[in-house]
Design a protein around this nucleic acid. Structure first.
Lengths: 248, 248
DNA sequence: CGAAAACTGTTTATGCCGCACACTGTTTTG
DNA sequence: CAAAACAGTGTGCGGCATAAACAGTTTTCG
């Protein structure tokens, strides 16, 4: 009943079963040559190497030596496959309990590990745009961060807001980093400089910042800078809160 | 020489000319029935109403009663058209000088206006993912924020970092907001609750936060919350800086 | 034991998409 | 008045996700 019982959900439920591993394997027909895991893994490899746009059903099937349509015996649609790719690439939740220091250090560690993920799988930012239904691993990362925030003494609503803030910052940094090497940095700043030379009077602050060296290096440590600001802000919020003592 | 002289840039240069209005209109042939502006405007209308995915060359041309290929007389590629859509939708830079208060209020105003933009044109977040070559209006918004930051006393490198931080937060909030109505909120939390009921033991902090009401409302004021944290952090940074006096 | 059911992988086809290319017809310039 | 430059069209290519019908294989049940 768990696997097939509630058919009302339709494709939503089927995809969920894949994500959560709730599937009873059939016993009737021939043995499958592939598997959801292997398909997902191959898709991730393609995306890592050539970007998300290179991941097509044909491309994946060709890597196995099968036809395009054979994949649909394992995965209901490409959207579901991408969801599987996401949750697989995200992997197990980070272990923050063993991080030395206070809640700031743990959150910083969460952010750094998250960023590493986005760098290893550059397509993740693109794939996780928008409000999706989260997979088990994604929920794990959320839970890990919420646990730290709760422990620090933030009330539930602020836990939510703070997570969104932290996650947003990491995503933002990742987006800039990964975008920066798809378009060469020097090419980018060359194009910018060219236009500024012609229209510099329209952008005085930008010109001044460039002259001051603000854009010579590709943003020193954007993650750490924002992290510091952000954690400082959260700490101040905590200090000004009425009467919630630090959790433990 | 300005318009066509440097042909080395290829498609990059041609698209730039469109963005910056550097184009000498031809005089030889028949009068064009459409214009880049009208095409861009129609494309934006479609995107506003039906999302970025609904914007296809066929769809746009059909809105004019012309064939698909006719559009390529005005725009070199769809990518360029999207770039035009972006810069047109962004529009003129915000006027922050008339905002009463200090640099915090001005930056907050920048963020709110930026968010309004992302809400009005939901496709903007999707379209502006990645590190692109910025158009004139986009540069204008950047310049406006940098001016405030410079005036507040931040050195160039930190202006850059702070802008990235602020922009990232707005984008993050926008992404969550706009994603939230494409997938109905109640449907989303229903799916989440269903899984938590089954696997709640794996996500103790999430369950606790939900019980505490952290997810009953769809994140009270995510922009303002993060804005406050972020500005507090920046202010602290400024206060701890060695010897830079506040600009004005 | 044999038929039916369940399952795997293939073939074929549909309707999108961006876009290259060759074509016709129009307007201006020399 | 011819040549050049341009506007819009029609055709076609390669790629995409995926629906539907199909053949072959393995298990289950009467």
């Amino acid at each position: 009943m768990a696997a097939k019982g509630d058919k009302g959900g339709g494709d939503l439920a089927r995809g969920m079963d894949l994500l959560w591993g709730t599937a009873d394997r059939p016993s009737r027909g021939p043995k499958p040559s592939m598997s959801v895991e292997r398909i997902t893994g191959t898709a991730i490899e393609i995306a890592d190497a050539e970007g998300l746009a290179a991941v097509s059903m044909q491309r994946i099937a060709a890597a196995f030596g099968f036809t395009t349509m054979s994949l649909y015996r394992y995965v209901p649609s490409k959207a579901e496959l991408v969801a599987l790719m996401i949750d697989t690439a995200i992997g197990d939740r980070p272990d923050l309990e063993s991080v030395p220091g206070g809640w700031r250090d743990r959150l910083a560690d969460w952010a750094r590990q998250c960023l590493r993920l986005f760098v290893r799988h550059r397509w993740l930012i693109e794939a996780t745009g928008g409000h999706r239904i989260m997979g088990p691993n994604e929920l794990g990362w959320l839970d890990a961060a919420l646990a730290v925030l709760a422990d620090a003494g933030f009330p539930p609503v602020e836990q939510h807001d703070a997570f969104l803030l932290l996650n947003g910052h990491v995503r933002s940094v990742a987006q800039n980093m990964t975008g920066a090497d798809r378009l060469r940095v020097d090419e980018w700043s060359a194009a910018l400089g060219e236009r500024l030379r012609r229209h510099g009077d329209r952008y005085p602050a930008l010109v001044a910042a460039m002259r001051g060296g603000g854009y010579s290096q590709p943003a020193a440590e954007p993650l750490e800078f924002g992290l510091r600001c952000l954690l400082d802000g959260l700490e101040k919020l905590l200090a000004e809160a009425p009467g919630t003592p630090p959790g433990r």
